[in-house]
Design a protein around this nucleic acid. Structure first.
Length: 661
RNA sequence: GCUGCUGUAGCUCAGUGGUAGAGCGCGUCAUUGGUAAUGACGAGGUCGGGAGUUCAAUUCUCCCCAGCAGCACCA
């Protein structure tokens, strides 16, 4: 009796029901006992919340959940199997010398980092994919074994897999290394699992691209070849995913920027934007909108120098920590002698740098005159144009440039003002994002790192100040231990765009360091000198990048107030050019950005062209409209027209075309 | 910066060891038309830059530059 009890274990299912099984029962056996269909759909189990293989014996009472392919978790496990079993084995079949590194899953797919003797081409990718299909057809069972450290190392040394050896050697466990084999094919892969029971359960997959990636993400280490792939439950899902990728490509701001004639780049100013009239209209609208918001929130706008002597950068600490990202200029008049050097050796004794940040300059403004505790908080805003010497490979359209303008501001305040300032900032940021169409904001509070300046009391106060501010604003947030900057804790804000991608734009950073280094102070109530706390903050981050995000999120169809051309007035026949001009002039007078299209083209052609150019409102005027003093309005994205009285239309459009603030 | 791929007309892209082609756009002319392409004709290119192989290179080889993807870095 006692013996029998010992051999029985209680398995609790997610619905709360419990069943008894013999100790050593496996997940797949339990699934089969519940329903055959469940066993068929099962890909893994969760035992007490931990993912395990269906074939793992369960030896003690446990809460068990069966993971099926329908779930996101199940799909991820399937992708993992495609990477670690199909892709890895296919590569080893075709390239026996290839060295496998790691093959995790990522959003929408997976990759595998592998060292090849020769670089791969896209034809190789097709070859590998073909081989994967062949392997999948074998429906081979996937069998796991548990091994000791020594055995595992020996197995991979035997197979000349140095990366696997390195992984195992670096692991702190001594036992229980999981090796997955496919039947008796001789293929094994090290993996934390779980994996499918057999290749039979694999859905559809496609290899997507090749890229380089450093071993262990370290740029000083070996560059491996990364093969990216995607896998889905069925063809329909794969098709939808590929379609989504196409859509994202269509929204690419670099493409839309060229099509819509907003901006361009050229080699003579790599990484810097040439704004065209239409693009700069958007830029100016954004800047004007933020300026009004900041002004209303008690900020004072300033403008500080572009070129600053390196002495100040030395004091601020940028020279030591940030110099490789700075553009440095000798302060000497260049020689006009064509044969000689442009500047003398001596010129390098006096250097200046284009500012990569505005903060040290803002402290200079703060430091003018004596500040009293009564003056605080002081909020200096600047549309500061910064230059950063970014690695060439990092440059990416408007998203990553070498010259950009921040909607930057620095708040100088007392320690007791941190929370109020942070609350005010969070509120402002929420309002701005909402005005711009971003209501999904992810917030992270980064707390003290190991290496830091400032006392623990100060950090306590600062971290709690930010935490209270977030709670007060009602923004949901996560806390990231150790992720703060050495000079203070920070809040990072990520917005989610129309197709679900996230962008880091806004930030609020406390700084205990810079006021100290640049000797900023105010006179307290006690008549003594005190250090102000400095808050760095931005909402858009960089105007360039944010406009890029707006273009992609709106797929070029910007809100009316931001559209470079808000209205085009097109006569149907040239007889009514004069009326079109009259409509245009009246709208212009009402503050609308409006143009006429008097070209000798059919109305169809004009509608098509301006629709492609993403003009939000097209007004057609012909005989009827001219006679009745009306306009026929057509909105972008609709093929309906509405005929309205001219004066009324101007009034309502003018209202609609206004910025949200 | 690293790895790989790419570079042909304003744009999208064919193509070839023997001096280059399409569509769109652009220009001219005709056409005055009611909501996503009117027609005809025409102009446009040192085939990214440099070197090499060759009788001959846009095509093959090497170097450089730039763009793209990813990595690393980051607003």
């Amino acid at each position: 009796m006692e013996q029998a009890l010992k051999n029985k274990i209680q398995i609790t299912l997610p619905d709360g029901s419990a069943r008894a099984f013999a100790a050593g029962v496996t997940g797949i056996e339990i699934a089969e006992s519940i329903a055959k269909s469940l066993a068929k759909a099962a890909v893994a189990v969760k035992i007490d919340g931990v993912q395990r293989d269906l074939s793992d014996p369960i030896t003690s009472d446990a809460a068990l959940e069966i993971i099926t392919l329908d779930s996101e978790e199940g799909l991820e496990i399937m992708r993992h199997t495609v990477a670690a079993q199909l892709l890895a084995r296919a590569v080893k079949n075709l390239y026996p010398d290839a060295k496998l590194a790691i093959g995790p899953t990522i959003e929408n797919g997976f990759y595998y980092d592998i060292e090849f003797k020769e670089p791969l081409s896209s034809e190789d990718l097709e070859k590998i994919e073909k081989e994967m299909r062949k392997i999948k057809e074998t429906n081979a069972p996937i069998v796991k074994s548990l091994n000791s450290k020594a055995d595992t190392i020996a197995a991979f040394k035997d197979r000349a897999e140095p990366y696997k050896v390195e992984i195992v050697e670096g692991a702190d466990q001594e036992d229980g290394f999981q090796l997955y084999a496919q039947g008796d094919t001789g293929f094994i892969d090290l993996c934390r699992g779980p994996h499918l029971l057999s290749l039979k359960q694999v859905g559809v997959f496609k290899l997507m691209s090749l890229a380089g990636a450093y071993w262990r993400g370290d740029s000083s280490k070996q560059m491996l070849t990364r093969i990216y792939g995607t896998a889905w439950r069925n063809d329909k899902e794969l098709k939808e995913y590929l379609h989504m990728l196409e859509e994202a490509e269509k929204r690419d701001h670099r493409k839309l920027g060229a099509e819509m004639d907003l901006f361009h780049f050229q080699v003579e100013a790599q990484g810097s934007v040439f704004w065209h009239p239409k693009g700069f209209t958007i830029y100016n609208q954004m800047e004007g909108y933020i300026r009004r918001r900041l002004n209303n929130a008690g900020y004072k706008e300033i403008k500080t120098p572009q070129l600053i002597d390196n002495k100040l950068w030395e004091k601020s600490g940028h020279w030591g920590k940030y110099r490789e990202n700075m553009f440095v200029v000798p302060d000497e008049i260049p020689s006009t002698d064509d044969d000689g050097p442009v500047v003398s050796d001596k010129a390098f004794e006096k250097l200046m740098a284009l500012k990569p940040m505005n903060c040290p300059a803002h402290v200079q403004v703060f430091n003018q005159g004596i500040k009293s505790y009564r003056d605080l908080p002081i909020r200096f805003a600047e549309f500061g144009c910064c230059h950063r010497n970014e690695p060439h490979g990092a440059l990416h359209g408007l998203m990553r440039v070498r010259q950009f303008t921040q909607d930057d501001a620095h708040i100088f305040c007392r320690e007791d003002q941190i929370t109020d300032e942070a609350v005010a900032f969070c509120d402002l940021l929420k309002t701005v994002y909402s005005d711009l169409g971003f209501d999904d904001v992810k917030v992270a509070l980064s707390l003290r790192p190991e290496m830091r300046v400032g006392s623990d009391e100060l950090w306590d106060k600062a971290e709690d100040g930010l935490r209270q501010a977030l709670l007060k604003t009602g923004l949901e947030f996560t806390e990231e231990e150790g992720e703060g900057a050495f000079y203070g804790p920070k809040i990072d804000y990520q917005i989610r765009d129309a197709i679900g991608r996230t962008w880091q734009c806004g930030t609020l950073q406390l700084d205990f360091n810079l006021p100290e280094r640049l000797d900023a102070s105010y006179v307290g109530q006690d008549g003594e000198k005190h250090r102000p706390v400095m808050l760095h903050r931005a909402i858009l981050g960089s105007l360039e990048r944010f406009i890029g995000v707006m273009i992609e999120s709106y797929a070029g169809k910007l809100p009316l107030w931001l559209a470079p051309t808000q209205v085009v007035v097109a006569p149907i026949v040239s007889e009514f050019d004069a009326y079109a001009q009259e409509v245009c002039d009246a709208m212009k007078a009402a503050g609308i950005r409006v143009e006429t299209d008097l070209r000798n083209e059919k109305i169809n052609y004009k509608v098509r062209e301006h629709s492609h150019a993403k003009v939000p409102v097209i007004i057609a005027v012909g005989e009827r409209e001219a006679t009745d003093k009306t306009v026929a309005i057509r909105r972008l994205g609709s093929d309906k027209q509405s005929v309205e009285d001219l004066a009324k239309a101007i009034e309502s459009l003018a209202q609609e075309c206004k910025a949200p603030y």
